[in-house]
C-alpha cells in the first residue's frame, strides 16, 4: 500500500484516516486524466428584466443539447411493415445537471421521490391515433383515437449498474384500459465515454387497453374481411432491449438502440396480427447530439 500523509487529516479520527488511505491507495490504479479545458460558453445573454416569483434566478451557465435522431418502428402495433421517422433532439438544463439513464420505452416521467437508488413519480405516455385509411391492413377496422396514458413509475437500483423499473398507467381517449410495464436494464460502462445497456421487458394490458387495437367486431369483420375476434387483456408482450451511447468528446454524443417485442396472448392471437401482421415487433433507433453552454448574466 502506498504512503499517504495523514498528518493533514483530523488525528482524532484514525479509523476514518485509514479508510481514506485505503481509498486513495485504491485510486492508485487510476491513470492520469488530462486536465479538461477551462469553462467556455458559446455566448452570454443579459439578465432577464424580471424574475418569476417562486422560481430561482436563471443567472449562471446553461447547457443546450441539439441533435437529430431517427427511429425505424412498426407502422402500428402488430404490423409487419415499418417506417423510418426522424426525431429531433433538444434539451436545455442547468450546466452540470445529470442525464439520468433512460430506456427508449420509458414514458415521460418526473421523479417526485428521489433517494438516489429509489425513484418514483408520475408518468405519462402519448399513444398516437391509428387511422384505418393510412394502411391497407387496417381497411374496414375503423380509426382508434389518440390515447393519453397517465400513471406512475417506480425505479430501483440495487447496484449502480442495474435498473429495475415499473410503470402503471391508465388510458384516456383512444383506449380506457390499464397498462403495466416492467423492465430491467444492466448498464455497463465499458469506459468513461462508452456505455452499453440491455435487459428484458414485459407488458401487461387490460381488456380495455387491448380490445380497441386487436378486437374485431361484427361490423369491422364485414368491412375488413377478417373474422370476428374478442380480444381480452392479459400478458401483452415480452421483449428485450439494448442501447449503446458513446460520448465522442464533451460536445458530441452518439447513441443507438434496438427494442424487440413479441406480442403475446390475445394481441398475438388477433386476426389482424395473425393474418395481416406479425407478432414480432422491432424498433431500431439512432441519433447524434451536440451540446454547448451559454451563460445568463
Amino acid at each position: 500500500m502506498k504512503q499517504f500523509d495523514e498528518a493533514a487529516l483530523d488525528r482524532a479520527a484514525s479509523a476514518q484516516q485509514s479508510l481514506l488511505s485505503a481509498f486513495l491507495a485504491a485510486l492508485g490504479a487510476i491513470t492520469a486524466i488530462p486536465q479538461s479545458a477551462s469553462a467556455q460558453t458559446a455566448f452570454t445573454l443579459p439578465a432577464p428584466p424580471f424574475d418569476l416569483p417562486m422560481l430561482p434566478s436563471p443567472s449562471g451557465n446553461w447547457t443546450v443539447m441539439v441533435g437529430i435522431g431517427g427511429e425505424y418502428t412498426p407502422d402500428f402495433v402488430g404490423s409487419k411493415n415499418g417506417k423510418f421517422r426522424p426525431i429531433p433532439i433538444f434539451s436545455i438544463r442547468r450546466a452540470g445537471s445529470i442525464d439520468q439513464f433512460r430506456g427508449p420505452r420509458d414514458s415521460a416521467s418526473i421523479a417526485l421521490l428521489d433517494v438516489g437508488y429509489f425513484r418514483a413519480g408520475p408518468a405519462f405516455k402519448y399513444v398516437s391515433s391509428r387511422k384505418s385509411d393510412k394502411y391497407s391492413e387496417l381497411t374496414g377496422l375503423g380509426d382508434v383515437k389518440a390515447a393519453y396514458e397517465l400513471g406512475g413509475f417506480v425505479e430501483y437500483y440495487p447496484v449502480d449498474w442495474l435498473r429495475l423499473r415499473s410503470e402503471l398507467r391508465q388510458g384516456v381517449g383512444g383506449h380506457t384500459g390499464t397498462v403495466a410495464d416492467v423492465s430491467a436494464d444492466v448498464i455497463v460502462p465499458l469506459i468513461q465515454r462508452l456505455t452499453i445497456s440491455a435487459g428484458p421487458r414485459f407488458t401487461w394490458k387490460s381488456t380495455k387497453a387491448t380490445a380497441p387495437y386487436f378486437g374485431v367486431d361484427a361490423t369491422q369483420a364485414l368491412a375488413s374481411g377478417l373474422p370476428m375476434y374478442d380480444a381480452r387483456g392479459g400478458a401483452h408482450s415480452v421483449g428485450f432491449g439494448s442501447q449503446i451511447s458513446y460520448r465522442i468528446n464533451p460536445q458530441w454524443e452518439v447513441h443507438a438502440y434496438v427494442e424487440y417485442e413479441r406480442l403475446l396472448g390475445d394481441a398475438a392471437g388477433s386476426p389482424l396480427v395473425k393474418l395481416r401482421g406479425s407478432s414480432n415487433q422491432t424498433t431500431i433507433g439512432l441519433g447524434a447530439s451536440y451540446s454547448f453552454d451559454f451563460r445568463i448574466r
Binding site: S38, A95, D293
Partner: peptide, 13 residues
C-alpha cells in the same frame, strides 16, 4: 455550478 462542462463524468457542481 460546475467549473467547466467539458468532462465526460459530470457532476452538478
Amino acid at each position: 455550478a460546475p467549473l467547466d462542462n467539458t468532462g465526460t463524468m459530470r457532476l452538478a457542481g
